[in-house]
């Protein structure tokens, strides 16, 4: 029996009168790649943001390495967030910093590492995502795919135990999706634990350890890619999967 590295129990979030999340639970084992699929507004993004408390859930509990996260305690929260990397749809690089400085700043300002040491580590991470030669460029000088790879390097530099990826390729030109997928695939092969929301189901099904179909704030169905895409039990899952397959195809 393995104990999950990340346990998410009964997360709920309500904005005004609208329930965005209605009790989502999820166990993630080390090395898992969980893929969240579902229509817009299903709560995928909110769930990911709740997992590292960028959105404070109204209910629910989260454990990392069997330690419950007490997010009301600021120090605990900041320590926890360092261990949970987050990748955003629109990259969110720091516009006034070069690629290198973007990757370095968290290590220097949050972890308190020396600039030189952090700089070396930043170069390594940028090399890993294939951007060493662009490290002196500012975000405005990088393509979307390059920006997303910098943001992945920035998250990796903090030595996260889990990575949350919120539609990492949705804002990219089709031509640039491949380079980001290659980096994510590489992460998966190296055993990184990830939860990713995506519409790229071809890519998802080739990598995922489990697919979770979300709708209306709930996880409606979960299972292996084969089960979800070919033998889904829920009619809504079937309908969504057939539509999205038509759109995004089988290719990863």
């Amino acid at each position: 029996m393995t104990t999950p590295i990340l346990r998410i129990e009964n997360i709920s979030k309500r904005y005004g009168k609208k329930d965005v999340l209605k009790g989502a639970s999820l166990d993630v084992n080390k090395g898992d790649l969980k893929i969240l699929i579902g229509p817009s507004g299903a709560g995928k993004s909110t769930l990911l943001q709740c997992i590292n408390f960028l959105v404070k859930p109204d209910e629910g509990r989260i454990w990392l390495d069997e330690q419950e996260v007490h997010y009301a305690n600021k120090r605990d929260l900041y320590a926890y967030r360092q261990k949970v990397g987050m990748i955003f749809q629109d990259f969110n690089l720091f516009d006034h910093l070069t690629a290198l400085e973007n990757v370095r700043i968290g290590m220097v300002r949050v972890k308190g590492m020396g600039k030189a040491e952090a700089g070396e580590r930043a170069v390594l991470e940028l090399e890993r995502v294939g951007l060493k030669e662009h490290m002196q460029k500012y975000p405005a000088q990088l393509s979307g795919g390059q920006k997303q790879r910098v943001s992945i390097a920035r998250a990796l530099a903090m030595d996260p135990k889990v990575m949350l990826l919120d539609e990492p390729t949705s804002a990219l030109d089709p031509e640039l999706i491949g380079e980001v997928h290659a980096v994510i695939r590489d992460l998966g092969n190296n055993g990184m634990t990830m939860i990713m929301a995506t519409h790229q189901i071809g890519f998802a099904s080739s990598l995922a350890s489990e697919i979770l179909f979300m709708e209306d704030g709930r996880i409606l169905e979960r299972g292996t890619p084969d089960k979800i895409f070919n033998h889904a039990e829920n009619a809504r899952t079937q309908e969504f999967c057939s539509k999205i397959t038509e759109l995004y195809g089988e290719r990863g």
Partner: peptide, 10 residues
Amino acid sequence: GQMLAAQSLG
């Protein structure tokens, strides 16, 4: 978004 990114780094 940049604030979310900064917060997510701790």
